[in-house]
């Protein structure tokens, strides 16, 4: 055995690595799969017979089974690609979990355009909008594998309905996972903007892109790993009495618009939302980096949007 353990930085690999200790620590936790992840979890399955349930390629049954497990007092963790976890069994999320008033932790991979080379069938940039349209859900969008570990451990001990969205994009440093909005970078000294300078809120893995995009702009940068429910209290305090705010999310543009509007309803605010465009299906393969650039979600694209709000034509 090597004395030095290299931390797993890929979120998906971290999730699989975390599951063994998690099942040891939480006797009420079961894992429900639809093939995806089954191979990687074989050691966990062998160690905990009956507690990793692979239902085959049956995503409706996957969520229904999770709902039934929760009705029987279990704490299900459900995992597959985002489109097959959220979109295909969406009514099961609504009824088998929400309407039954039971919880589960849904852990997705393949966020937005992670699966750029796979095409539209494996992409679900509307996932957070869909989940947050249902009552009683918490949505975590971690930006670092350490955040994945912290969120998974915390939520295994609750009975809430949780969507934990893993991504191949990640930030260099972990941030807090307490559900709040945190100021990450104030206005650089020498730049104009004491007090309530314009604010950019980066969600999850967009943080490093936002930091790079705005390094020479007179804005403050805040972060949250939990866009839903949004920490309105901190957002209001940071945004100030006359907010100039850019929200940068790695999924469908404007997903948090209603929550932000509600938080700032009592003040004159200029707010723009940056994310995956709503109106066009990008019929291109290539890398996630290619897709980020095409969507305006690379540093250059995000910088253009932030700058445009600061200096309207």
């Amino acid at each position: 055995m090597s004395a030095v353990t290299t931390p797993v930085l890929d979120m998906r690999a971290r999730f699989y690595a975390d599951l063994g200790p998690l099942l040891d620590a939480h006797p009420d936790v079961d894992v429900v799969l639809a093939v995806i992840g089954s191979g990687q979890m074989a050691p966990v399955t062998a160690r905990h017979p009956g507690r990793v349930i692979d239902v085959g390629i049956r995503e409706q049954a996957m969520i229904g089974v999770a709902g039934g497990l929760a009705l029987a007092g279990r704490r299900p963790i459900v995992h597959t690609y985002a489109p097959f976890l959220v979109e295909r069994p969406y009514e099961q999320l609504k009824l088998d979990l929400g309407h039954q008033d039971v919880g589960a932790v849904l852990v997705s991979i393949g966020s937005s355009f992670d699966a750029s080379a796979e095409g539209r069938t494996h992409q679900a940039p509307a996932d957070v909008a869909l989940v947050s349209a249902l009552p009683g859900w918490t949505v975590h969008v971690p930006g670092h594998a350490d955040e994945v570990t912290a969120l998974l451990q915390a939520e295994a001990a609750t009975d809430r309905r949780v969507y934990l969205r893993l991504s191949r994009q990640r930030n260099a440093q972990p941030q807090p996972t307490d559900g709040r909005v945190h100021l990450v970078r104030d206005v650089a000294s020498g730049l104009d903007g004491a007090g309530h300078a314009p604010l950019v809120l980066a969600v999850g893995p967009m943080l490093d892109t936002v930091l790079a995009a705005s390094a020479d702009l007179p804005v403050r940068v805040a972060y949250t790993a939990t866009p839903h429910p949004l920490d309105a209290e901190t957002l209001r305090a940071l945004a100030g009495p006359q907010p100039v705010l850019t929200v940068v999310e790695p999924y469908l543009e404007g997903t948090s618009a209603a929550a932000v509007a509600a938080a700032l309803a009592d003040r004159p605010a200029r707010v723009q939302h940056v994310g995956v465009p709503r109106d066009v299906e990008l019929r291109r393969y290539g890398t996630p980096r290619d897709h980020a650039a095409a969507h305006g979600l690379d540093a250059a694209g995000v910088r253009r949007r932030i700058a445009a709000l600061l200096d309207p034509p």
Binding site: D30, A61, G64, L69, A70, L71, G73, R74, Q100
Partner: peptide, 14 residues
């Protein structure tokens, strides 16, 4: 079409 999958999960849990 929701009861039978829920029943499968409940039976597994019990």
């Amino acid at each position: 079409g929701h009861g039978l999958p829920l029943a499968v999960g409940t039976a597994l849990g019990l």
